[in-house]
Nucleic acid binder design. Structure first.
Lengths: 300, 300
DNA sequence: CATGGTCTTTGACCTTAGTCAAAGGATCGC
DNA sequence: GCGATCCTTTGACTAAGGTCAAAGACCATG
């Protein structure tokens, strides 16, 4: 981890202060003008995750980090105001689900309208060119902050998170490959555990958002497979982070060469491998879904 | 005012949500761990503006937007904790000034250390290149948000804010011009009021941060003078905004030509005038501090 | 069907944040 | 020197935000 310059820390804090002071305060103010801030936030959160069966109280609690009693009272208040309806969960009557009523939906729409006009009001102070630059810079900041918060962790090949990622990966390939994708092609849990290999999962705020597998392919040679990033986490540069982790792990095991293959449909992957120092080689193994083969020599 | 696209509004809100959720919450949490958030903020604000005579309570009140009674009680609490000392203002005993004690300084340093390590922790999740890009994008966002919040207003030439700006302007020129600057060269209040001319002041959060004067120079011709931006508000593109306001005002009066002169020492001003469509002309009047003369024909 | 564990509700309580108005001391303008 | 005004302090109050623990309803398990 390279050391962070004090100048950059100061930049960061300057930005943070300015932003929370200027925009954060404004936002809280408009949000809280009809009802207490906590209630407004809760309503918002309910709207955000209002599925077919409503939202679980339990989920709201963990999401907003609220005390059970406090939450219970706030939802009761919202129910009295006609914004939401509480009901017992159909399969487990210890649980409560909460969902917006039509009146609640109107209220949330109104909240959103206000937030929109707050944002529009700020943006309106700029000409078109600067406005576009502002939006772009905001997108950059958000992208990089997200990336900074994602950690790539070594997990056991049997871990539920690992298998969940591979499932999502397989679903996606099944759609993207013209010939579909057969899940038996996935690495087994044992192939990426212990001596045989390794599995990495990328986490963003506790949620798995990417993965990558490494397995022994020959003496001193590893094979990289199933490098995948959740659609919500793409274009952050996360695949490279996963690849880095896999390469570091390979080196740790004295596997000085890593190989991988890729399907013609995954053009963006090929570009990334090339950019990361992989060079195309002849087929090193038979594989149904492989059209291109790459190799990289590790270590300095 | 050009209309703001809904896509941009959505970008803005996405950014806002992400930032306040991820960074804002963290910050409040660490800030408030030893004492109530309000108190921590107050202490911070006192430290920030701790001059040779301390800070005026009145100033803190307006800066933090607090109720007089509330502030009075909070400072008392901080005094009891030994963080600050209250004293009566030497020249006006209605006023109170407050200043940090050594113990208070230690406390603030500790707070700062924690905020720094929070920032460093976030930045440490990125490699050098991305970290630099993050800081740059943050600086851009901050610059543009500031600019968006600044308004340029038409004020009377006698207004205290107008004269305050001209004073600051004169002080600066006195330093920058090798021959010094004589304040009698400034436009008089009447020259930039009513029919004779106009004066604009740029405000950032209520504080004047720039100005510009327009006065009748000949039939159908205006002269622009004293375009100035406070050092804290430079490099935002504010001078152009002031210039725009002056030109719009000139056109409103059917003055289709505006002229101005500038001193050789103000090289950045000359570049700006050229970039804004001004062309150099021969001297149109005698003027002690003028080395270059510019003109622009207004209207479409 | 008893037992331990999971959720939610309720009651009791506390701190923080903030408002309002009255009062008191000081200054300013006339 | 008087009244208006300014700034701070104090008292009285309120709402919001949050914590803790006990109780109640329910589920899963042996």
């Amino acid at each position: 981890m390279e050391s962070v310059s004090t100048e950059q820390v100061a930049d960061f804090r300057r930005f943070h202060r300015y932003f929370t002071r200027r925009i954060g305060a404004l936002n809280d103010h408009y949000l809280g003008q009809d009802r207490p801030l906590g209630e407004a936030r809760l309503l918002f959160e309910i709207a955000e995750h209002d599925g077919p069966d409503g939202v679980l109280l339990r989920e709201l609690r963990s999401r907003l980090g609220l005390d059970a009693g406090y939450l219970s009272r706030m939802t009761k208040t919202l129910e009295r105001q006609g914004m939401v309806r509480l009901s017992v969960h159909p399969h487990d009557s210890r649980l409560r689900t909460v969902r917006l009523t039509p009146a609640g939906r109107v209220e949330v729409t109104e909240q959103n309208r206000r937030a929109d006009s707050l944002a529009a009001g700020v943006l309106a102070g700029l000409d078109t060119g600067r406005r576009a630059r502002l939006c772009e810079a905001m997108a950059t900041v958000r992208r990089l902050l997200r990336l900074a918060a994602i950690t790539v962790e070594h997990v056991d090949g049997h871990a539920p998170d690992a298998r969940a990622c591979l499932d999502a990966y397989a679903d996606e390939l099944d759609v993207r490959f013209p010939e579909g994708f057969d899940r038996t092609d996935l690495v087994g849990p044992d192939e990426v555990s212990g001596e045989a290999g390794a599995f990495f999962v990328a986490y963003e705020e506790g949620r798995p958002v990417g993965c990558g597998a490494l397995r022994r392919q020959a003496a001193g040679t590893g094979e990289i497979r199933h490098v995948w990033v959740h659609p919500d986490a793409r274009r952050l540069g996360l695949a490279r982070r996963v690849l880095d982790a896999l390469e570091v792990e390979a080196l740790r095991r004295d596997w000085t060469v890593v190989r991988l293959d890729t399907h013609a449909a995954l053009t963006e992957a090929q570009a990334m491998y090339r950019a990361c120092g992989y060079t195309e080689i002849p087929a090193y193994a038979e594989h149904v879904y492989a059209d291109h083969w790459f190799e990289k020599r590790l270590g300095r």
